[in-house]
């Protein structure tokens, strides 16, 4: 029993070490030539362009639900919902836009990355790259890392803008707030820096997704089951890390509010 626990602890420590080794390798190669611009653009298309429809639809829906629910409860408790635009905008910019879009990108892009790398691992394509003198981290991870960090930044801004737009639209059509009134109420609660903080969060979440996904892909051991496990672990771990990171970043940014 004790030895099993000990083995597990050593295994976990080694795993964390390996992750930070991959992080170091990726950062080092991200800031040193040669780059693969075509691959970066291809990955950007996969990460940003192909994710945008599902991300925008989902976060906008979440924003609509949030504003309607807030209005309902405020009317119930304080008999008016004049504060809804401000609260909704703050909630969207500080949490909803960045976190929900990052979790959606994780489930789509992270799963894809992990499955791709894991399949390459079990079919020895990673070894084939090494035998051709090609560095798998530079070749496979760095383009994904650059695409996801830049993509996370962009997606976060676009998702927040879409959420705010939908909030204004619902506020006007369903809750009876005028466009000017909504903007004015929002202005009392949020500032431009909230959008910047949201973009920074998107950037950081974007960095987590390819690193964790590729890490589990490289660790894939055997067969179709191994690929499935690598994909599941990648999505679950990325999601948890994003939540933890969101907490840390929110706490850090709270000093500047």
């Amino acid at each position: 029993m004790v030895s099993t626990v000990g083995t597990q602890i050593i295994y976990r420590i080694k795993m964390v070490q390996d992750f930070f080794y991959l992080l170091g390798q990726t950062l080092w190669r991200t800031f040193s030539a040669p780059y693969r611009p075509r691959e970066i653009i291809k990955q950007m298309e996969f990460v940003v362009w192909q994710s945008l429809p599902v991300v925008l639809f989902s976060v906008s829906s979440a924003a609509v639900v949030t504003i309607i629910e807030s209005s309902f409860h405020m009317r119930l408790i304080i008999q008016n919902d004049s504060l809804v635009p401000g609260f909704a905008a703050m909630l969207i910019l500080r949490e909803l836009g960045a976190v929900v879009s990052a979790l959606l990108v994780t489930s789509r892009v992270g799963a894809g990355f992990a499955a791709e790398i894991a399949t390459m691992k079990i079919t020895e394509q990673i070894d084939a790259l090494k035998m051709l003198g090609i560095d798998p981290v530079r070749f496979l991870v760095v383009p994904k890392f650059i695409a996801c960090t830049v993509g996370g930044f962009l997606i976060s801004i676009l998702a927040n803008m879409a959420c705010l737009y939908c909030a204004i639209l619902v506020g006007k059509l369903k809750l009876g707030h005028s466009f000017e009134g909504f903007i004015s109420s929002m202005g009392n609660f949020i500032q431009f820096r909230d959008l910047i903080f949201a973009a920074i969060k998107g950037f950081c979440f974007g960095a987590v997704i390819p690193l964790v996904s590729c890490f589990y892909g490289f660790r894939c051991r055997s067969g179709a089951e191994g690929v499935g496990l690598a994909t599941t672990n990648a999505v679950v771990t990325s999601s948890v890390v994003i939540i933890i990171m969101d907490f840390s970043l929110s706490w850090f940014f709270s000093r500047y509010y």
Binding site: T123, E124, Q125, D127, A128, K130, M131, L132, G133, I134, D135
Partner: peptide, 19 residues
């Protein structure tokens, strides 16, 4: 090591072709 690897070629058991 990468430079030496480029002077070595390997055929893998299951070919490891880039699919």
């Amino acid at each position: 090591r990468q430079l030496i690897s480029r002077k070595m070629g390997m055929l893998f058991q299951k070919n490891a072709l880039f699919d």
